[in-house]
């Protein structure tokens, strides 16, 4: 997307922080993890080392992301789940539903 003014850049950055926070909450809620969402960092690998998620968890995340953002992650696109950042990039590249986003400070 084209970012023209400083205000637009700040608005985009704010929205991205909200999307990232929502993704972390989905990861913790959907996978019943016993950690605080803030414990997950944006670049931390979710699969393998890192959070050690597996393909069963990927399905759960796909379900959670769809119900929160109305965004479908299609087959063959599993690289989307690499980290919170890659998920946020993907969601924001789609026509996503932002009505459930909570403000972050």
């Amino acid at each position: 997307m084209e970012l023209a003014t400083k205000e637009q850049v700040l608005e985009y950055a704010k929205k991205r922080r909200m999307v990232c926070a929502a993704i972390k909450r989905i990861i913790v809620d959907q996978l019943c993890l016993d950690i605080e969402p803030e414990f997950i960092t944006n670049d931390q690998p979710l699969f393998g080392r890192g959070l050690e998620l597996d393909s069963i968890d990927a399905l759960e995340l796909a379900v959670g992301i769809f119900s929160e953002f109305s965004v479908t992650v299609s087959d063959g696109n599993s690289a989307v789940f690499s980290s919170v950042n890659t998920i946020a990039d993907y969601i924001m590249s789609q026509d996503y539903d932002d009505s459930n986003l909570q403000p972050v400070d």
Binding site: I56, A62, D75
Partner: peptide
């Protein structure tokens, strides 16, 4: 939902 070879 379906994702790759898994379905919910």
């Amino acid at each position: 939902t379906q994702f790759e070879n898994l379905s919910q």
